[in-house]
Design a binder for these strands. Sequence first.
DNA 1: ACTCCAATGTTGGTGTCACCAACACTAGCC
DNA 2: GGCTAGTGTTGGTGACACCAACATTGGAGT
Lengths: 146, 146
Amino acid sequence: MDEIPERLTTKPSWLIAQLAVHVRRLVFDGFTAAGARGYHYRILAALQEFGPASQAELGRRCRIDRSDVVAAVGELVERGFVDRTPDPDHGRRNRVTLTADGARQLRRMDRVLDQVQDDLLEPLSAEERETLTRLLGRVLARHEPR
Amino acid sequence: MDEIPERLTTKPSWLIAQLAVHVRRLVFDGFTAAGARGYHYRILAALQEFGPASQAELGRRCRIDRSDVVAAVGELVERGFVDRTPDPDHGRRNRVTLTADGARQLRRMDRVLDQVQDDLLEPLSAEERETLTRLLGRVLARHEPR
DNA sequence: ACTCCAATGTTGGTGTCACCAACACTAGCC
DNA sequence: GGCTAGTGTTGGTGACACCAACATTGGAGT
């Protein structure tokens, strides 16, 4: 294989960005087999954990732009994983709810992701995985409060 | 701020992907000010470290698709950071070389990236940064041999 | 009560990065 | 000499993140 410039390999920003590429491919492959993509998982997860929500809420919880939530929820509705109904108490707002099929799909995607974590962290011991997760969490937390 | 589903926050794959988003934004902001983007830096770095190369070589070293190298090198030529000349020994092949302006631009981008590393890892101590870098490197190495 | 501001859903863009298929051409192997 | 592998190039695709604008609605302030 060709050598990678040291300027890249020594920079955490490169390691994270490059690793994210591989993560995305692993996740993409797994989700594609289930006819889904990343945005779907995030939205189903938020609905399962916090209950029915408006699209704007989903966007804030899942770190997805309002406009992208529209499309993703639309796809989930098509597949029958989610219902989108107008909020009775609130003229403009929608109310998105998880269906039984949606919950099943979420469980399926959970299994896919568990497999991905194992593939991804394969070279690390249990303690190292814990350390990595903790450090990443701290760094991310510092940048999340947007 | 809105709460993020636990299903996401506990998964290394989410942490990496999400952190990569912030990395990309930091890098993008810094590079945009210099009129550049990520692919430019990778290519300039490879030329500086390994000397003149063909576009296919650059692609392999920088993990960039052949077809994307064409566009990126074209942009670098426009800006005068790189020369693209036919390889005399090899009919079809190009020979891409770094110019003095290109080397200057690389140094400029290096400074930007140093700043990004600091911003990024701000919450971690020096040892923790080292640990994180080492763990990321090991995980990435396992997935690199593509 | 009225005004004004914030929030919501939606459309229609943009940019980066990664990747693929196809084509024309060249070099080098057998 | 013919086939195979490598090269440059064009022209797509997809996911993700993001922005601007618009119409509409709710609610806060005065």
